[in-house]
């Protein structure tokens, strides 16, 4: 774990430590099992074509979970994630597998974010962030926001 980020360390515009993810067909199967979302849109070529998306797409909820990972990594043990939201705007297509474990070369997704506001309220040191998942072309397919409480070094 990296060192604890504090309220005092962040300003509007501060970048959240980016997190890289590679969606693969294997990962989508694993996510389907772990989340219980068995919609064939995410693993059946013919069904995905019939639904008009061309090929199986990455679960919106998986991208949302990635954003959760982004935030909890950044705020560390002493931070508290209070709100997380995102919109499923753009479709993402997983890399196919080359071997049982290794995907083919291709797209890498980046979970990113920056601080948009900081304030104290009800004894908490709150930070609002704009967050998103960015695809290999740099498009924000899953924009969202988060509200976190961070520890402070200040003594009252």
């Amino acid at each position: 774990m990296s060192k604890q980020v504090c309220y005092d360390d962040v300003e509007v515009g501060t970048e959240i430590t980016p997190l890289a993810k590679v969606a693969t067909t294997r990962m989508l199967v694993q996510w389907a099992g772990a989340s219980g979302d068995f919609n064939p849109l995410h693993y059946d070529d013919d069904f995905a074509k019939a639904m008009g998306v061309g090929a199986p797409i990455v679960h919106g909820a998986l991208k949302r979970a990635w954003l959760g990972h982004l935030m909890t990594d950044w705020i560390g043990e002493q931070g508290k994630l209070k709100k997380l939201s995102c919109q499923y705007r753009g479709m993402d297509y997983p890399r196919k597998m080359k071997t049982r474990e290794e995907p083919h070369d291709g797209e890498t997704w980046w979970c990113k974010g920056k601080v948009t506001k900081k304030y104290e309220q009800g004894g908490e040191h709150l930070v609002e962030c704009e967050i998103w998942v960015e695809n290999g072309k740099g498009e924000k397919t899953t924009p969202g926001s988060a509200l976190v409480a961070l520890p402070t070094r200040k003594r009252k």
């Binding site: 709100k83 939201s85 969202g144």
Partner: peptide, 10 residues
């Protein structure tokens, strides 16, 4: 049907 997005409060 399409999934539009989600908002959580913890």
């Amino acid at each position: 049907l399409l999934d539009g997005g989600v908002e959580f409060e913890f």
